[in-house]
Each structure stands twice: as structure tokens, then as C-alpha cells.
Amino acid sequence: MTNKYKVPPQIEHNVKSAKDIGKGKNAFLSRRTTGDIIFDTVNLIIMILFTITMLYPLLNTVAVSFNDGTDALRGGIHLFPRMFTWDNYKAVLSKELMPTAAKISVLRTVIGTVTSTFVTALLAYVLSRKNFIFKKQLSLIYVITMYVSGGLIPVFLVYKALGLTNSFAVYILPGMVSAFNMLVIRTYMNGLPESLSESAEIDGAGHMTIFIKIIFPLCMPVIATVALFTAVGQWNSWFDAMLYNRMSDNLTTLQYELMKLLSAVTTSGKGQTAQTMEHASGMVTPTSVRAAATVITSLPIICLYPFLQKYFVAGLTIGGVKE
């Protein structure tokens, strides 16, 4: 249920920079043998098949989302819609809970990411002070949480007792300080020259000033990476909405609404043909509405993807975590 981008410590030194990844050793392959040609051809075919497997389901969903629902039931929609329509999107957007879900999804992503990144970085700062007397103890009580957790039931009961059920805070508070992200940020901070904060200290700057004015800005690369993963995690999660806020329609999220659409189709068993519903001018089906909802829900990720890409490979390689 959590982001998996844990990087083992020993691998870190192997990686020079994110840009190196994927650059091959093509230079000395100038003389090609028959074996080479066969290998390259087979490789090319595999790569093409792989790419098709990755892309086709996504493109097909887009095509279905723009196609008339009842027409799509006839089959044969692959990469392009046959009877173009906006009705599926209109149907999704006119659903009662959609505006709320979109608002909550955006809010939890923005607030959750900003608070979590800042607070986690602050803890990393405290633990990166070399002579801090409780450094070991404080690190330890956080690192332990990476390996043992209370589990679903105790956590649920504690949140309930704290009044976090049926509240927006349950999206923000529980994940606010992440031990793993703290280690990633701290590793980066430990790599910064000590003289920077020392000279600021001599000038009389307090820890908050040093953190906000000097260290935090210098850590931007790692902060960006951590923020990005936090944001994707926030945007994509649906389970907390279902577990803690099921009774509060005003706290639903896009992913949870999409999940409801999905389970409406899966649990209905074989037939989805029967339940066509009339909407506005055209016809929409559960499948076509779900396709439109899927596109809407994944749109922010797809749009951000080019920017994401720059950071996530860096994020994977920065994570030289010790202890």
C-alpha cells in the first residue's frame, strides 16, 4: 500500500548520475556479426511487443471513453472511437459526488504533500545536526517504524479514538512524517558542507532560520523527489477514503469514486450489457462511464509525467540510506 522506491544502500555508490542510466556501450559494437544482427532483430521485436502491451490498454480506454456507450458494446473499438461523443464525460462530471471528490483529491494532494515534505525535512534537519545529543535515540524510534507497525485493526481503533474517522485530517496526519523519506533527505543533508550552517550560526542565526533560509533551499533536488512521490501516493490512494470516511460523502476522493464504479461492474458479474442508461442525448454504459472516469483520474499524472520523470530516477538513486 506504500510507495515502493526503497533503494538498498550498497547500490548507491554504483550510480554516477541519473543521466547515465540507459546509456549503453554501443561504441564498440561497430562490427556486427550475424549473431549480433539476429540478437538485435529479436530484441527490437520484443521491445515493440512490450511497448504495445504497455500502451494499448491505455489508448483503448481513451478510445472507449470518447465512444458512444451502446455502440461500444458491439465491440471493435481499438485505438480510435467509432461514434465520437462527449456524453461519457458529461455523465461522469454530472455525477453528484464528482465535484466534491475532485476538490478533496486536489486538497489532500496539495496540503498533504506540502505539510509532509516540510515536516519530514524538518525532522531530517534535526537529525542531521552532528552533535545533537539525542540524535541516536530519535533516529532509532523512527527507523523502527519502518519495520514494525501496529497493523490495520489497532491503527483503525486509535484513529477512531483520536476522532480522525470521518475527517479530512485522516488524509494528512497519519502519513505526515515518513521515516523512509526522512532518511533519504537526511542522507542528502549530511552531504552538504558543514561550513554553511556553521558560519550562519556564528552570525547568530537560529536553527529555524538556518533550516528555512539555507538548508531547505539547498535540498531542493531531494525535496522535489520526495514531494513528488508523496503527491503521487496521495492522489492515488483510495483505501483510506473507504476505511475511515465511508460515511462522509463530502470527504470522498476521485480514486474512491472510481473504485465504486469499478466494483459496481465487477460484482455485477458477467453482464454489463443490460444496464445501459440514458443520459442527455446519447447512451452511456457503466463501462464507458468508467473509461471516462479513468481518463479524468489519470490525467493529472499523465500531464505531470514529463516533469516527474526528471526527478524520479534521481530519487531512486539518491536514496542511499544508511542505518
Binding site: 504497455m54 492522489w235 492515488n236 472510481l258 461492474v265 450489457t273 473509461a291 483520474t297
Partner: peptide, 25 residues
């Protein structure tokens, strides 16, 4: 292209699995 699906939620990916394996189309 290969990284892209990692960033999609399981809700979306499950929906895709369901569509790809559907008996209807």
C-alpha cells in the same frame, strides 16, 4: 513508456485488467 504504469493507481490498473480480460470485447 515502461515507467508510466507505476504511477497509475491500482484502481485504474485493475480496471484495465478487467477490460483487457473481459468476455465482451
Amino acid at each position: 513508456i515502461s515507467y508510466l504504469p507505476h504511477f497509475l493507481s491500482w484502481v485504474i490498473v485493475t480496471g484495465i485488467v478487467f477490460d483487457v480480460l473481459s468476455t465482451e470485447n
